[in-house]
Each structure stands twice: as C-alpha cells, then as structure tokens.
C-alpha cells in the first residue's frame, strides 16, 4: 500500500493543470484494481487512458470523480481536493459513465433538465443550456422523444450531453464509443475533439488504440492497474527505439517458427495469434531474409509479410507482452 502523500515532481501543480491524480491505489478485496497511478491533464488537453478490459480504467475514473474512496493517493481538480465527500468540488467535473445512465422513460429534454438541476442549474439558465446541449449533440429535433425510442448512437450522444450541461472544466468520458455504429462513433469523436479545442480538459478512456491515437494529445497506457507508459504518441512510439512491427501470415508449425525467430538476433518478441506471427524487431526490414529462411527450413509456408511502423498497439505489446485486443 502506498502511503506517500507528496505529489511527484513532474505533477507539480501549474495553473494550466486541471486534473492532478497522484499515486492512486484501489483494491477490491485481494484484487488490485488501481496500483500507484499518477498523471495530470491540462486545460485544453485530451488525455487518453488506453488499456484492455479489466485494466483499471473505470476504477481510476470512479476515483477521480469521487465515486469511490481511494486506498491511497490524492486527486486535485481545479486546485480542489476530490474525495467521495467533497461534494461542492464535484461541480468542476462532467462525468460520462461507461453505461447509458439515463431514464429510458423520460424524454431527452427531461433527462437533461434532471442532470442540469443536479448541478444547480435552474430557470432560464437551465433551459438555455439544455437547448445548447441538444444542439451540440444533434438531438434538437428529438428533445421531446423518450430515450427508449432512441438508437444506440443517439443514446450515447445524449449520455455525453448530460455531462456537458454545467460546462465543466474537466470532462471525463469512460469508453464513450462502446457499442456504437461507425458513423455515430465518428460523430462522438468529432465532438470530443471540439471540447478539447474549446479549452476543456478531457479525460478519455478506451481500449481502441486508433481512438487514442486519433483523439488524444497524450496517452497513458494502463494494464493490470498500473500506468506502464505515458506520453504523446510520438514519445510512446519512440520508446520502442528503431523497432518495426512485422506481421507474418503463414501455415504450418507457427509455434516452432516463433521459437526460431526468438533466437534470431534483433528480434525482441515473437507471438503467435490467429494464424499470424507478430514480431517486434530492431531494423525489421534487414531481418526479413533470415526470418523467411527460418520459415523455409521448418517447412511453414509464408503467405504474406507486412512491415509496419510501430503504433500504440506495438507499444502495448512491447510493454506488456500481450496484445491490446484479444
């Protein structure tokens, strides 16, 4: 258990930093869900927490929103400490949960009014904000319809809208694109991008590598409750050095081939998955002949070879030894 109460040096509060989470820890019984997690999000910045299911993203977010009591660590939002009992300070946060937390039998407008009132909005100001938000999420025409009649994408948008009514300084979105068709997903991501552009600090969790790459200024990679790496996409990829990501599609004894590849100099990792071998190699292009020769010797037939610039997927693989998506 971490009992350190000091803020790590790189998280020293600056005026631009909206969220500072330092050394957060949370366990459920024996299961460690969040383990010594620290990061900060500045105004106008979109920060992505990228990790597979069960990595601890939702738990981290519930700690940050004051919904769970942390076992250790500190959270400051807009300079104010957050805890489950820090009721007034929660006003700075807009929380969009992973599930659709809306009343299905109330209309879109009624739902927005409800959440607006929870944040102390009322009267003209409330009406004004509800109208604005309906515009923003493209549901002005459907304000008087019940949520249960909405498509999955519309519900997702309204779910996000309910977190925007009080114009929070920090918007926290927990996997907002799960279960959404590609078109709505695009719309969701476009609006998230606009929030960042408007100066809001955005904390965004996802297990989709492409979303984190496209949307986030900085990404924290989380696995088994630990933040294993953090930085801009460029910084993260640079951690791999001159690494290439090679994908071999082949038939035959793939396990033996992977074994053989691991023995080759310059290859850091070799994993078999779905009839493919994923290799992480230094100067991969120059190693290709050796790989192909090994394949021939074992008797496997290589159908295609793909050499890719490393991406966050490769970073994740490199850092954790497992693929991001199983």
């Amino acid at each position: 258990m971490h009992s350190v109460e000091t803020v790590p040096a790189h998280l020293e509060q600056t005026s631009a930093q909206v969220l500072i989470a330092s050394r957060l820890a949370k366990r459920f019984g024996d299961r460690v869900a969040v383990d010594d997690v620290s990061f900060a999000v500045a105004a106008g910045e979109t920060y992505g927490l990228l990790g597979p299911n069960g990595a601890g993203k939702t738990t981290t977010i519930r700690l940050i929103c004051g919904l769970l009591r942390a076992d250790a660590g500190q959270i400051l939002i807009a300079g104010q400490p957050i805890s489950t009992t820090a009721t007034p300070a929660k006003k700075s946060i807009g929380y969009v949960p992973q599930e659709i937390a809306l009343y299905p039998d109330l209309t879109a407008r009624e739902n927005l009014r409800f959440f607006g009132r929870l944040y102390g909005l009322h009267g003209k100001a409330l009406n004004h904000r509800v109208g604005k938000v309906l515009d923003l999420i493209g549901l002005s025409e459907r304000g008087r319809d019940r949520v249960e009649s909405f498509s999955g994408g519309m519900k997702r948008r309204l779910n996000i809208g309910a977190g925007l009514l009080h114009e929070p300084t920090l918007l926290v979105l927990d996997e907002p694109t799960v279960g959404v068709d590609p078109q709505s997903r695009h719309a969701v991501m476009e609006s998230v991008r606009s929030f960042g552009a408007a100066g809001m600090a955005v904390l965004y969790t996802t297990h989709y590598m492409e979303e984190a790459e496209r949307l986030c200024d900085r990404v924290g990679i989380i696995d088994h409750g630990r933040l294993v790496a953090e930085g801009t996409r460029r910084e993260l990829v640079a951690q791999l050095g001159e690494h290439d990501h090679i994908q071999l599609t082949a038939t035959g004894d793939l396990a033996a081939l992977a074994d053989r590849c691991r023995g080759l100099e310059g290859i850091d990792r070799a994993d078999v998955k779905d009839g493919q071998i994923q290799l992480l190699a230094t100067e991969g292009r120059r190693l290709l002949p050796a790989v192909l020769e090994a394949a021939e010797r074992i008797g496997t037939t290589v159908r295609s070879v793909e050499v890719a610039e490393p991406d966050l997927e490769a970073v994740f693989l490199h850092l954790t030894g497992t693929a991001l998506r199983e």
């Binding site: 004051g66 919904l67 929660k90 949960p97 599930e99 659709i100 009343y103 959440f115 929870l118 944040y119």
Partner: peptide, 17 residues
C-alpha cells in the same frame, strides 16, 4: 432499476449527497 441504470452513481458524481 434506477440503481442498475447507474443513474444514482452518475448523480453522485454531481455535487449531490
């Protein structure tokens, strides 16, 4: 049902006791 929908949980993220 309201509990299950996560509405209370969401409400508690607001300045609400």
């Amino acid at each position: 049902q309201t509990r299950q929908l996560g509405i209370y949980s969401r409400a508690l993220a607001a300045p609400v006791r």
